[in-house]
Amino acid sequence: MTDPDSDSRSEDLDLPDDGSAPARDDGSTPSRAERFRVAAVRAAARARDLDQSPTLQRAVRRLRDVLPGDSHFGDPLSLGGGRHTEAAGRAIVGLTGDRPGVVRELGLGGVQLWQSVLERVGRGGGEHEVALVFTDLVDFSRWSLEAGDDEVLRVLRRVGEAWEPPMTERAGTVVKRLGDGLMVAFADPRAALDAVLEARRRLEELHVGGWSPRMRAGLHVGRPRRVGGDYLGVAVNVAARLGDAARADEILVSGEFLGRLDARTVSTRRRRRLNLKGVPDGLEVYAVEPARS
């Protein structure tokens, strides 16, 4: 039968250094519950000491540096996405309370390795070629100044319903929503272009609040670095700059992107007088439309 006072008494026990169960002041033998409590306290203290060991922490950090994948996985930039790996990383950081320790580093190292394996089999970004799409609404900022917040929100919801499904239905991943724009990543350039064409068609049918939203888009292919749920690198900058430079209803693509398409399926026009900052010299830019039957 459990001694009802055992817990309160065990809290005041002095723990001998030799690992034996402490004796009570009256010389009586501690109960089984007291001995278990003492053993648990000692084990927890030893675990904390090991977790906070500077030597072990340095060893685990060196191990993470040589493991495949992002050795910095666990910082805010790498945990911003919606994939399983980012969710697992956020859980580890939450459970360890942002406190450096061996357990935290081992957990993040395991997810780091898992993420690198997914990328190698084509389920991540990494070194794989990606077709990048940037879209936004022409003159949206000027219209929104007069429309008011409630109307702007209503329009953005209608726009999202019009242009997001064509992207996701063709295996596009919406990387981020940029207010009146989207950044979407595709594995297949042809699917990316078809999605943009369908999104533009749906948007042309949309008339809300006396305003007809009009879309522009930029498309490029490259091998951007995937960090968390985002992509970083020159390829991203190129696609974004093409989107900024497009006119209403215009779809601009790079020469690299155009080279991935069947030339018989598109009609092209070279855009020459463009001053694009932050893109490689000699970038060729084309406005594309479906080929006329």
Rank of each mutant, 00 (worst) to 15 (best):
S6A: 15
S10Y: 06
E11F: 08
D12P: 07
A21R: 12
P22N: 13
A23Y: 08
R24C: 11
R24T: 11
D25M: 09
R32C: 05
A33W: 10
A40Y: 07
R42I: 08
A45D: 10
A47L: 10
R48D: 12
Q52A: 15
Q52G: 13
Q57F: 01
R62Q: 14
D65G: 00
D65S: 01
V66G: 02
G74F: 08
P76G: 09
L79A: 00
G107D: 11
G109V: 06
G109F: 12
Q112A: 14
Q112R: 15
Q112C: 14
L113H: 15
V117Q: 15
L118W: 11
E119I: 05
G125S: 12
V130P: 02
V130C: 10
V138G: 01
F140S: 11
S141M: 03
G148P: 03
V152S: 05
R158Q: 14
V159A: 09
P165D: 12
M167E: 01
A171Q: 11
L178S: 04
G179Q: 08
G179W: 09
F186E: 08
D188C: 03
R190I: 01
H207Y: 06
V208K: 01
S212M: 04
R216P: 00
A217E: 00
G218R: 00
R223Q: 07
G228H: 02
G233R: 01
A235S: 14
N237C: 03
V238E: 06
V238D: 05
A245L: 06
A245R: 06
A245D: 05
I251C: 00
R264W: 12
T265D: 05
R270I: 03
R272W: 04
L274D: 04
V279N: 02
G282F: 05
G282V: 04
L283F: 08
Y286P: 07
V288C: 08
P290L: 02
S293L: 11
